[in-house]
Simulated scan of single mutants.
Amino acid sequence: MVGSSEPAVFAEHLVKRFGERRVVDGVDLSVPRGAIYGVLGPNGAGKTTTLRTLLGIIEPDEGHRSILGHAAPREASDRVGYLPEERGLYPSMKARDAIAFMGALRGLDRRTGRARAAEMMEAAGLGHAIDEKIKKLSKGMAQLVQLLGSVVHRPDLLVLDEPFSGLDPVNQEKLESLILAERDRGATVLFSTHIMAHAERVCDRLAIIAGGKRRFEGTVDAARGTLPSQVRYLPTHPDAAIAEVLPHDAVRDGEGWRFQLPGEGIEGLLGTLIARGYGIGGLSIERPSLHDAFVRIVGRDAANPPGASQPNGGATA
């Protein structure tokens, strides 16, 4: 992370109501400059409304926010790239011209925009489609074109709302690479997602939102740390009495056993198991995944609401 100690994005007690419903309910955020910051949550958690409120697309009912040091977010609009959840490009426009056009909306001159568009499309493996009309591109290719249009003016802040939704695995990998490249360039990246795997791989920090409230803020490791690691143990000479030696939470797992990693470590227990003649036929210590931590933080019902997608793919939030 680089640059000023002042956060790129800051929000304090952000509230947005629609009728009687508080869709954003007292959210606090502080996104460090030069970081990749994920806003995670199930469908309907308030992620999109939070991003739109931060950007000044809609106004909060309570609280305040700042973008790149501006209390009025739109004052920083030329320094921001934004990919909304609802994608939209002019279908009859050529891909390179669409990217240049999006750059022009942020103050980039057309010639520079077209030159950068060609370079970026080549780098993204889309060089063959530079002069193709948008309507002839696949959904994934069109989505990447719109993403390139969001960064062609080289913004200081890139905001992406559910950017991975609808992309196949190859294009998801390209998007992850682009996000990392933007961070390496010095930009701050703020994105929302309900797909834990992407956040786990690229985020420096993240916030977990459910029911309009922020339930967690910190690093991926800190989120995982809300759950203990699990030990999977396979004895070489098992018998029923082994249960008296294992921790009280140990449960059968096939031919072996599974239990939480003891707070004092595993070494003493292993010594006892060997001394009693049970041996070690197999042993693994598994850290909880971000999805496991997410479910614990927001609750299983909130993590998997009726009609929602599974955590590794599916519908947008």
Rank of each mutant, 00 (worst) to 15 (best):
G268V: 08
R258K: 14
A315I: 14
G149Y: 00
P238Y: 02
A240K: 11
T272C: 07
V152N: 01
P7Q: 11
T112P: 00
K135S: 14
D253Q: 09
F18M: 12
H13I: 00
F216R: 03
A250Q: 11
V231R: 00
A197R: 13
A115C: 05
I57E: 08
K136L: 14
L14M: 12
S30G: 08
L167R: 10
V295L: 01
D184L: 12
M102E: 02
D97C: 08
N304R: 08
D131Q: 09
G81S: 04
V31I: 13
A115H: 06
G127L: 04
V152D: 03
I297G: 02
A123S: 13
E173S: 13
L270Q: 11
Q310G: 15
M141F: 14
G313E: 02
E122M: 10
H237P: 01
E12Y: 07
Q146I: 10
I285S: 05
E200S: 11
R65H: 10
K174W: 08
A199Y: 07
M1R: 11
Y82T: 03
G113F: 02
D28W: 01
E12D: 10
I242E: 09
K136N: 15
G56E: 03
V27A: 03
D161G: 06
G44L: 00
V23S: 05
M1P: 13
D239I: 04
S192E: 01
A317V: 08
K133M: 14
G113K: 00
L40C: 04
C203W: 00
F216W: 09
T112V: 09
S77M: 11
I130D: 07
D97F: 07
R106N: 06
V31W: 08
E59V: 15
S150R: 03
V151Y: 07
L180E: 06
S5K: 13
I266H: 06
G149I: 07
R183K: 15
T50P: 04
G263L: 13
G268K: 13
D156E: 15
D78F: 09
